[in-house]
Write a protein that binds this DNA or RNA. Structure first.
Length: 523
RNA sequence: GGCGCUUUCGUCUAGCGGCUAGGACACAUGCCUCUCACGCAUGGAACACGGGUUCGAUUCCCGUAGGCGCUACCA
């Protein structure tokens, strides 16, 4: 059993864009598989055709392509255990429900939705909860209460039916969870779960999941904590099928919670606080609504991976920046935390910055050029990279629910609001600007004229070339020109080192901006 | 309501009977400085509560309270 090759799966439902919590679940499965040299399977759980959303499957695939998470088999990857789309496995499931039926582990139920609702309302009126189980099944219309001929007649005549799992009450069912240890639930609180649906003649999640995991030889089920309550049911199903000896090990991961307030992370939180909850941008085909994605928002895939990996798990040391290879090496299910993790998107900014800063300036350039183009500014990648090198250490103001705050540049996009003056000369000066008031004195115009004339003599307008001449002039004149010079070239109190900016603009442009400022700021 | 999971700085977490309870994000201050910064340094900040067990509990057990999840012919 332990010598079996590790096989894990990620099995989403194609009901829309993948939630970021789902991405983390997939990542943990991937890390686990790679660490053990095992297989990672991609299965599509589309047994609820009413919730099927076109394009969702392709979206999920694209997400993992972007993140660099690779599957070994599954939908679109091939493999010996297919088909990997549950809707294509209907005939297979049929055989297995029949097996349960034949062996008395399951039974037919003919109760209509109306009948069940009536029972629920009835119970509710008495402050109770109706549950289809040992205590109530004898009052319902099913193959346990009906005469055998009657059941056969109903089946023969094509009456709608579901197949329910027959739960024997009064038994403590244990689940051995890798993260949580022994979890025990008494079977009396479980209901006779529907295994086969009447409406579409397809299995429910529970049945399909167990059959598939068994047939696909899955060794470890790593999934969200929302499945923990039904894990005992799954154990019982393995038992009913006689597969208990090859039952996978379970690991139920803590959930991702809202950054503030109560409850689990939802799409609304992202909209409200301004961060994506989906890996890629999603266009809702029905409403036309667009939801932002990590990729389109400028996150680097390595940063998203690193950030997500450490939400609910950490390797123990002080190192927080970890490559995929390091994550694979250090990952440990037993060290996953048990309690839900608040989604700290601000830390996500930091991760992105760390990875962005690791890249050469030239690698920022293509994105930056595109962003500048959106603003109507044409420039080259070389020029863009120069700006990046001068500006990437700056901070940007951003909006939060508590008002504007400042943070380090974490995205290529952050550069733009700080870089306009590299490409567009000041056309006016705000007389109220504190920096200008403080640094433009009556004698300043004359000092700037002197500097202008000094600069005009320089042939080598590189940083070094300017420095050699201007530093000497500063030395002998005693004038500190930088802040006023900044006013001339930038128009306000921000920007990079003046020599760097001046070299970037070039002599002609620098002189033009200085002349304009001296003229305009005459006072 | 029932059942289950869970509880260390604001947040993510380290800790696996004896520690000045560590790190990171965020926050504050100082240094640096040609603006805003980066960087560097420093600082504030936590074991939910009550019982046990023990020579000794953040750590083990039991309660209480809080948080989260499940309670569909959805996954």
């Amino acid at each position: 059993m332990n010598s079996m090759k590790v096989r894990v799966r990620f099995a989403p439902s194609p009901t829309g864009p993948l939630h970021i919590g789902g991405v983390r679940t997939a990542l943990y499965n991937y890390l686990f598989a790679r660490q053990h040299g095992g297989d990672f399977i991609f299965r599509i759980e589309d047994t609820d055709r009413t919730r099927f959303v076109p394009g969702a499957e392709e979206y999920i695939l694209e997400t993992f392509r972007w993140l660099g998470i690779q599957f070994d088999e599954g939908v679109s990857f091939g493999g010996d255990h297919g088909p990997y789309r549950q809707s294509e496995r209907k005939e297979l499931y049929k055989v297995y429900v029949q097996q349960l039926l034949d062996q008395g582990w399951a039974y037919y139920a003919f109760d209509t939705a109306e009948e069940l609702n009536a029972r629920r309302e009835e119970a509710e009126a008495q402050g109770e909860k109706f549950q289809y189980d040992a205590s109530t099944r004898s009052q319902m219309r099913n193959s346990l209460t009906l005469a055998q001929e009657e059941t056969e007649r109903l089946l023969q005549e094509g009456h709608p039916y579901v197949v329910r799992f027959l739960i024997q009450p009064g038994e403590d069912v244990h689940v051995d969870d890798i993260i949580r240890g022994d979890v025990c639930i008494n079977s009396s609180i479980l209901d006779d779960k529907v295994l086969w649906k009447s409406a579409d003649q397809l299995p429910t999640y529970h049945l399909a999941n167990i059959v598939d995991d068994h047939l696909m030889e899955v060794t470890h089920v790593i999934r969200g904590e929302e499945w923990l309550p039904s894990a005992p049911l799954h154990v019982l199903l393995y038992r009913a099928f006689g597969w208990e000896d090859t039952m996978p090990r379970f690991a139920h991961l803590p959930l991702l919670l809202k950054p503030d307030g109560k409850g689990k992370l939802s799409k609304r939180d992202g909209d409200r606080l301004g961060f994506p909850v989906f890996p890629l941008e999603w266009h809702n085909p029905e409403t036309g609504e667009v939801s932002s994605g990590y990729r389109e928002s400028g996150y680097l895939p390595e940063a998203v991976i690193n950030f997500l990996a450490l939400l609910g798990w950490n390797p123990g040391g002080d190192q927080e920046i970890l490559s995929m290879d390091e994550l694979i090496e250090k990952f440990n299910l037993e060290k996953c935390s048990k309690n839900g993790a608040r989604f700290d998107y601000v830390k996500g900014f930091w991760f992105n910055r760390e990875y962005l800063l690791q890249r050469p300036d030239a690698e920022w350039a293509p994105d930056f050029v595109r962003i500048l183009a959106e603003q109507g500014i044409e420039t080259t990648e070389e020029k863009a990279a120069e700006v990046v090198s001068m500006m990437k250490a700056k901070v940007i103001e951003y909006q939060t629910k508590d008002g504007p705050k400042k943070r380090n540049i974490s995205f290529v996009r952050d550069l733009w609001p700080l870089c306009r003056f590299f490409f567009v000369a000041p056309t006016a000066f705000d007389p109220e600007d504190k920096f200008i008031r403080k640094n433009w004195k009556p004698e300043t115009a004359d000092e700037m004229r002197q500097l202008r004339d000094v600069l005009a003599t320089i042939d080598d307008f590189s940083v070094e070339g300017q420095k050699a001449v201007v530093d000497a002039w500063v030395e002998q004149s005693g004038i500190k020109p930088w802040n006023a010079w900044r006013v001339c070239l930038v128009g306000e109190g921000q920007g990079p080192d003046m020599y760097g900016l001046s070299a970037f603009l070039g002599k002609e442009e620098v002189l033009r901006r200085m002349d304009f400022a001296i003229q305009t700021l005459k006072l």
